[in-house]
């Protein structure tokens, strides 16, 4: 063999060697078989129940749009699957459904980071280790990602609220005209689970006519609607915590007219005979001690003075 042919052979060997190294390097970069990483296909080979709808799930659709994640959607939430492949026990894979408030539950909020989740880490649900998977199922088709429709989903844990919602006076949740999320933000709010800065503000967002400001005020309205009302349900009408007049008597003295003994039978009004009426012996008690709001109807406040001078016009009768 001539020296020139030996040189050529070395060049060919070097070229093959370089090519092999290059191919191996490229292969290493692009291969899904990098230690600890597995693609969707590998996961779905066992988890075929998930695979059935995967392409139609919100996550499946999202990952489909991102070439870098297209084949590794499972690992985007579940972390590296390498160890799980070697030993397929649940302990060897990250499961967001088991996350708690000490760090791991922010996994979902890394992507779901819009303002509706701003308060999640301060929320009562988060603090109770209720995680996203407690209410949502991430492997379901678009439009079916809630485990149950509300309010049933909420009632599973808040069953005492369900009982209140079935009381004679209630917000129309039972009738399907409202849902829990009309008042509560399950992902956290400023006051407990509510959406706004204070309980009053939340109520006024629907009952704006009761906010005022008014010339003639009813002080508890300035404090808290909860002084007189209970939001989920009550025995008394209008979600009142107690029936009238008992509720009003907590802060007010009854009319002294309730002590007046009445006619037992028919009577005429001297100045207006057309108003002839029938009374009982306890007629004044019935008039004055049944429903205070029959006369004091503007109980949330009013701009119109009431008639009697003695109260300075502030009797909330009109």
């Amino acid at each position: 063999m001539s020296s020139s042919s030996r040189g050529s052979n070395r060049l060919i060997l070097l070229s093959i060697g370089l090519l092999t190294v290059a191919v191996a390097a490229i292969g290493l970069i692009s291969s899904p078989a990098v230690a600890g990483t597995v693609d969707n296909e590998t996961c779905l080979a066992c988890h075929d129940d998930v695979g059935e709808n995967y392409a139609m799930t919100p996550h499946g659709i999202y990952f489909q749009q991102r070439p870098a994640l297209r084949d590794y959607g499972c690992e985007s939430c579940h972390g590296s699957g390498g160890r799980h492949i070697e030993d397929p026990t649940p302990d060897n894979i990250l499961n967001p459904a088991n996350s708690d408030q000490f760090g791991s539950s922010i996994l979902c909020t890394q992507c779901h980071n819009t303002e509706q989740f701003d308060e999640w880490e301060f929320s009562a649900h988060h603090n109770a280790d209720i995680n996203c998977a407690s209410c949502h199922t991430s492997h379901a088709k678009v439009g079916h990602t809630m485990k149950k429709p509300t309010p049933e989903l909420c009632y599973d844990c808040h069953s005492a609220v369900k009982a209140e919602m079935n009381l004679p006076s209630h917000h129309p949740v039972r009738e399907g005209e409202m849902s829990c999320s009309d008042c509560h933000n399950p992902h956290g709010g400023s006051v407990s689970l509510t959406m706004d800065d204070s309980g009053r503000e939340l109520c006024f967002s629907c009952h704006a006519e009761k906010e005022g400001p008014f010339v003639y005020e009813h002080a508890p309205v300035s404090e808290d609607c909860g002084y007189c009302h209970t939001p989920h349900g009550s025995v008394a009408n209008n979600l009142l915590t107690q029936n009238e007049p008992t509720l009003c008597l907590n802060c007010h003295s009854m009319h002294f007219h309730a002590t007046v003994v009445s006619v037992d039978g028919e009577f005429e009004v001297p100045q207006a005979p057309e108003r002839a009426s029938r009374s009982t012996e306890d007629g004044w008690k019935r008039v004055m001690l049944t429903k205070c709001t029959q006369c004091h109807g503007a109980v949330h406040g009013s701009d119109l003075p009431s008639q009697a001078t003695s109260t300075g016009g502030n009797a909330l009768t009109r």
């Binding site: 129309p172 009738e175 209008n238 009374s279 007629g283």
Partner: peptide
Amino acid sequence: SLVHRPGQDKLANIAAREY
């Protein structure tokens, strides 16, 4: 949309004259 029908108060108890 919904319709709310609150109970009607008939004022049937408002009838009294002092005796």
